[in-house]
Design a protein around this nucleic acid. Structure first.
Lengths: 142, 142
DNA sequence: CACGGGCTCACCCAAAAGCATGAATTTGTC
DNA sequence: GACAAATTCATGCTTTTGGGTGAGCCCGTG
């Protein structure tokens, strides 16, 4: 997020905080009592919080969307996958189970599991679907 | 969103509104003065607002973020995926676990499992990686 | 030769995913 | 309002995945 945006938010929030504290003292505070005043402040800031939350989230979403292509162009083969690990990754991307990959590669299920585990470690993921997604953004898979 | 969730939110908000109004009068109010009290309430509800906003809009965010592909594809092969089924498909493609998808959509794990099962039936697949692969070849996902 | 990396396999355990089934609720349509 | 589709949730069960550990083999490098 840009610094100017943060500053803008800060100014808006500050104004909204200060203005009521300045004005309400003379009207609502004395007229309706402190309970209503506090309730008003609470409701006001609840709404502001919702708004701010949405603003923050929108920015985060934009950033993540922009990040994806950057990573792709920067890292061609960075994770350093070995031959077998890459073959296993391809099998995963095809939607095969570990057992099917094992049969295809003529190795045991345990071996595939080991490759898969090392693969996850290098790609820094925890699930096979995530591995596929990350591998595609890294340009490892088409 | 189910009724229980709304009720829960209401109770939490009500408690947070009432409790300070009850306790602070005896401590902070007298100790630090009304300005600090109001500031505290404002900050508290600002945070609550951010949280509530994220909870309320998370669903809509997911839909809007993932609606683009289905519009783009225009339902060619017509596997006839429902809205929710497509949303979980997007979650799967992102590499999320069923539990994470459930949290994101504000439904239970069991519900996600049901959607996933129906999804597999319609796409004629048996695993989530396969579902992603098939969905991409069908043009359902980019 | 010793060392490290890659490949292979095994075992155990926990978590996640998947399958089948039933059911309540909501929603859209006729 | 009736009906179908969609959505939600649950329960019990099996299979698949993932994590951790250990170990034997081969091969290239220092």
């Amino acid at each position: 997020m840009k610094f100017g945006t943060i500053l803008l938010y800060g100014i808006v929030l500050g104004l909204i905080l200060v203005l009521p504290a300045y004005f309400q003292y003379q009207f609502m505070f004395m007229t309706y009592g402190v309970e209503w005043h506090i309730g008003f402040i609470a409701l006001l800031f609840l709404v502001i919080g919702v708004w701010v939350g949405n603003q923050l989230w929108a920015n985060r979403k934009l950033e993540s969307a922009q990040n994806t292509p950057i990573v792709r162009s920067g890292n061609p083969g960075a994770p350093g996958l070995s031959q077998r690990e890459f073959e296993v990754l391809c099998g995963i991307a095809e939607g095969l189970s570990n057992q099917e990959i094992a049969s295809k590669m003529h190795v045991s299920l345990n071996t595939v599991k080991t490759h898969v585990a090392n693969l996850y470690d290098k790609l820094d993921v925890k699930r096979r679907t995530q591995a596929v997604q990350v591998a595609k953004t890294l340009g490892l898979l088409s």
